[in-house]
């Protein structure tokens, strides 16, 4: 046995081959479950891909590093459910690339922040968090109010996500820019109908930052925050039911 091992140690090609074999075994065990990822995603109604405006908002969220202070994952623990609401389902982040679960909670979890505040509260809170929560250590993001949301290439963004498996249709990609404008109430008349047809009638259409005239990053990020945790139809959800 030892003699044979000696051969291995002295022949670099042979050693390389065996190293590859050994690592592949470990690698396979890690990778194979990913091919059956769908078995870990709960069947729940209502989850749709983000609208182009919400997606632009998520981009801002990632750029600003909000995930450094905020998680988006309510664990199935009593105190978390008590504070934040229904625990998060895998299905709720299946279209997030990258997912925003986070691991640090300097601020509260945001997985279900959608609908918890009004748009105008978010506007003021992003501009000056200490105005409403004097002890807050969240920094001011006032620049978002004056920066134009980056929407010029939002269609290609949808297209790229489609490659990763997000079910954007051709018409969603084609109309991405118009849909984004329509959702912020800055689109031309009747572009709203197309948006609602593509993303569902519950899609929130509002001038999120309250400033008519242009679509700001604030519009984008508030549209994103307002949809977080609101898509899944949790009333009908039962963890024991298998589809």
């Amino acid at each position: 046995m030892l003699e044979k091992h000696k051969k291995l140690e002295k022949n670099s090609i042979l050693l390389l081959i065996f190293i590859i074999i050994t690592i592949s075994i470990g690698g396979l065990i890690e990778i194979v479950p990913l091919f059956r990822l769908e078995t870990t995603i709960e069947p729940v109604k209502g989850i749709r891909p983000y609208t182009p405006l919400e997606l632009a908002g998520q981009d801002v969220y990632i750029r600003e590093g909000c995930y450094g202070c905020h998680s988006q994952q309510i664990r199935a623990l009593r105190d978390e459910v008590e504070r934040y609401g229904h625990y998060s389902l895998a299905a709720e982040s299946m279209y997030d690339h990258p997912f925003q679960w986070g691991s640090k909670r300097t601020g509260p979890d945001l997985a279900r922040v959608g609908g918890k505040y009004s748009d105008s509260w978010h506007v003021q809170h992003m501009i000056n968090p200490q105005e409403y929560v004097p002890e807050s250590i969240m920094p001011s993001y006032s620049h978002m109010a004056t920066s134009k949301a980056s929407l010029d290439d939002i269609g290609s963004h949808l297209e790229a996500l489609r490659v990763t498996g997000v079910p954007y249709t051709d018409s969603m990609i084609e109309n991405a820019y118009t849909d984004a404008m329509a959702q912020a109430n800055e689109g031309e008349a009747n572009t709203k109908d197309g948006l609602l047809k593509r993303y569902g009638k519950n899609t929130i259409v509002r001038d999120f930052d309250g400033k008519a005239g242009f679509v700001s990053e604030l519009d984008a990020i508030i549209s994103y925050l307002q949809v977080l945790g609101t898509m899944a139809d949790l009333k009908d959800y039962n963890p024991d039911v298998v589809e």
């Binding site: 194979v32 479950p33 091919f35 059956r36 078995t39 870990t40 709960e42 298998v242 589809e243």
Partner: peptide
């Protein structure tokens, strides 16, 4: 164990 599923489709 993931993937290996018993009677359930919800893996494992």
């Amino acid at each position: 164990w993931p993937v290996i599923s018993g009677d359930s489709e919800r893996g494992g």
